[in-house]
């Protein structure tokens, strides 16, 4: 199971308001018709964390080991999508994979 804090892109000490804001931002970016899988993940993460009671419960009850994607998201979170530079495009067009 993915770490819900990282799915929402929030810190471990986030409060109710931060969780809600992150969730609303997330579903605005990924509505179900655009990315159903991501939307479901956001929804699940929000349900796990939306109150302090739930956050304590999550911390105490979920003993699953971290996934690779969790470590990646924590150490180097995904940023805004960028356009590749001309050099990279040129390399690919020259056949340099």
């Amino acid at each position: 199971m993915r770490n819900p804090y990282l799915i929402l892109g929030i810190d471990d000490d986030a409060d109710d308001a931060v969780v809600e804001t992150a969730y609303l931002d997330g579903i605005k970016r990924c509505p179900p018709e655009r990315d159903a899988e991501r939307f479901a993940a956001l929804r699940q993460a929000y349900e796990l964390l939306r109150t302090q009671r739930r956050r304590v419960t999550y911390a105490m009850y979920h003993g699953e080991p971290p996934e690779t994607a969790d470590i990646l998201d924590k150490a180097a979170p995904i940023g805004a999508p960028r356009r590749p530079d001309a050099a990279t495009i040129g390399a690919l067009l020259r056949g340099e994979e």
């Binding site: 690779t68 470590i71 990646l72 979170p77 940023g79 805004a80 999508p81 960028r82 990279t88 994979e97």
Partner: peptide
């Protein structure tokens, strides 16, 4: 390949550090 990875990661918003850590993992 390296160019493919750079291109795809840029489009997804992946930083070089993320790519490096991903390769390590």
């Amino acid at each position: 390949g390296e160019a493919t990875l750079r291109f795809a990661c840029a489009l997804r918003g992946w930083s070089p550090a993320r790519v490096a850590l991903h390769q390590e993992l």
